[in-house]
């Protein structure tokens, strides 16, 4: 964590250091179905974050004693590559932060996946943060939702995640690394767009009830854009084939 004493001014004339407005998302790009072996996958670029998510399953739950005879279980692993951050080489292997993120991510998906449709099975979600620049858990959940839909896993909704924070007395959406380091609070959320319910919620720092309400509204507004990008990525896997066919029929 950076020391608050050296805090740069993060908002100048209503704009953030990277030129964004207070309620503006970083650019997001998603590509679905990128890995051959996985049942579903997605590659996501969110600002400088680079995330690969993959899904295997439903498959027979192993070891057998973890099987639930009436529903599927979800396993989730979030981890960060040792070369993912600007700066020193990271340590590989699980740490407390990654373990916690894996758990809350799994729980977010447990309430949207139709677990009863696949009794005795397991669904594995892998989230690899290849490059990190703040907000990786939100990016990971947004990518994993696309990977799950790409795998044809039955879900109530295509969920997304985003965070907001507070700095220089203003609320800001979608914190990057430097904003996250100096911000007065950070509140990542995973949201089901069809009813606005929160499936993941974490927060630390200081926040009034009024600010919380405004921040959540900002996240839901941004969610419309994120959802549209997720759906476009899934549709693209089918459009691409149509374009390829046209190409090959024009004598290529």
């Amino acid at each position: 964590m950076a020391s608050k004493a050296n805090k740069p001014q993060l908002i100048v004339d209503g704009k953030r250091l990277d030129g964004r407005a207070l309620n503006e998302l970083r650019p997001i790009k998603i590509q679905a179905s990128v890995l051959k072996n996985a049942d579903g996958s997605a590659y996501l670029e969110w600002g400088d974050n680079r995330v690969l998510a993959a899904v295997y399953g439903p498959k027979e739950a192993m070891p057998k004693h973890v099987q639930d005879p009436v529903k599927a279980i979800i396993k989730c692993k979030y981890q960060m590559a040792p070369f993912s951050s600007m700066g020193e080489h990271g340590r590989s292997g699980p740490n407390r932060r990654a373990t916690e993120i894996s758990k809350v991510t799994r729980e977010a998906f447990e309430s949207v996946v139709m677990l009863n449709d696949f009794p005795g099975s397991e669904i594995d979600i892998f989230i690899e943060i290849l490059q990190s620049d703040g907000g990786t858990r939100a990016a990971g959940i947004t990518a994993a939702a696309v990977a799950l839909a790409n795998a044809g896993i039955h879900m109530k909704d295509l969920i997304y995640a985003v965070s907001f924070g507070k700095t220089d007395g203003e609320l800001i959406l979608d914190l990057n690394m430097i904003e996250d380091n100096y911000s007065e609070c950070d509140m990542p959320m995973a949201i089901a767009p069809r009813n606005g319910e929160l499936l993941l919620l974490q927060m630390d720092g200081n926040l009034t009830k009024e600010e919380m309400k405004r921040g959540m509204a900002m996240a839901i507004e941004a969610g419309k854009k994120i959802t549209a990008i997720q759906k476009a990525a899934l549709q693209e896997t089918y459009k691409k084939t149509e374009a390829d066919i046209k190409g090959s029929e024009n004598g290529v």
Binding site: M114, A149, H154, M155, K156, A192, R194, K231, L234
Partner: peptide, 28 residues
């Protein structure tokens, strides 16, 4: 897409679910 409304009334069909009187898709 998962979560999209297919019908404004409850319908029984594969790959969908009913919630609050509406029928939603659960797959692409």
């Amino acid at each position: 897409m998962p979560g999209d409304v297919i019908f404004d009334k409850p319908m029984r069909m594969d790959n969908s679910y009913v919630e609050n009187g509406k029928t939603y898709a659960e797959v692409m």
